[in-house]
Amino acid sequence: MAKLTMTAHKQPTGKIRIIAGEWRGRKLSVLDKPDLRPTADRVRETLFNWLALRLPASRCLDLFAGTGALGFEAASRGAQSVVLVERERDIVHHLQQQASVFNAKQVEVIQADALRYLANQPTPFNIVFLDPPFSSDVLTSCLQTLTNGWLAPNALLYIEQSRETVMPDLPQGSTLIKQLMTKQVCASLIQF
């Protein structure tokens, strides 16, 4: 008797709640994938308190979208547009489904490697989220590339990294304005 083989798509295994805004209390489903690490509620709440006055009508880029928590939270709180960049095809498909469920017309999901995306013609963003997998070493490259036209005047850049990781050198003309340390994470907000 022949064996039947089926390719199984990853199923959502968890939920992340949107903290505030239009979709307050709604939940994003999260796929069970290695390196897919949602930003903790406490860290997200602090970050979006930092961004509260700058977020409405802003253009946001979530360069390592993963769960989409940062990008969807920004859209829920009034961002004019949010671009979610993710390289994993199944995660991209899942994020597109989430955008459809939320009727999030201001959210665009793009399948691309972060550095390849940044190799395109730059479009300036007001707020950029950099939350790569902790095992990667792309922060320095992303920071250097973002300064080549990707940041609008007075842009804000959020970096989330492992607490043990050394903060990369900040580009000239940028200033670290806020920082939060938890047991596992160092969350930094940089002004350009």
Rank of each mutant, 00 (worst) to 15 (best):
M1L: 08
A2W: 07
A2P: 15
L4V: 14
M6L: 14
H9T: 09
K10I: 04
Q11A: 10
Q11R: 15
P12W: 00
P12K: 04
I18C: 07
I19F: 01
I19M: 05
I19Q: 11
A20C: 08
E22N: 08
R24S: 14
R26L: 08
K27C: 02
L31A: 09
A40G: 08
R42Y: 05
N49G: 11
L51I: 04
R54C: 01
L55T: 04
L55M: 10
L55V: 07
A57K: 14
S58F: 03
R59P: 02
L61A: 05
A65H: 04
A65W: 01
A65F: 02
A65S: 13
G68H: 12
G68N: 07
G71E: 02
A74V: 09
A75W: 00
S76R: 12
G78Y: 09
V83S: 02
V83P: 01
V85M: 04
V85Q: 07
E88Q: 15
V92C: 14
V92N: 10
V92Y: 07
L95E: 08
A99I: 00
S100V: 00
N103W: 00
K105V: 09
K105A: 13
Q106C: 13
V107T: 09
Q111F: 00
D113G: 10
A114Y: 10
R116K: 15
R116V: 12
L118M: 08
L118D: 08
A119T: 05
A119C: 00
A119I: 02
A119H: 06
Q121H: 09
Q121S: 15
T123Y: 08
P124S: 10
L130N: 05
P132T: 10
F134E: 09
F134H: 11
S135A: 15
D137R: 14
L139R: 10
L139H: 09
C142Y: 04
T145K: 15
T145L: 15
T147G: 06
N148D: 13
G149V: 03
G149Y: 11
A152T: 09
A155T: 08
T165W: 00
T165V: 06
P168E: 13
D169N: 14
D169R: 10
D169A: 14
T175C: 07
T175K: 13
L176T: 05
K178F: 01
Q179M: 09
Q179S: 12
K183N: 15
Q184R: 11
Q184L: 03
C186E: 12
L189R: 03
L189E: 02
Q191V: 05
Q191S: 13
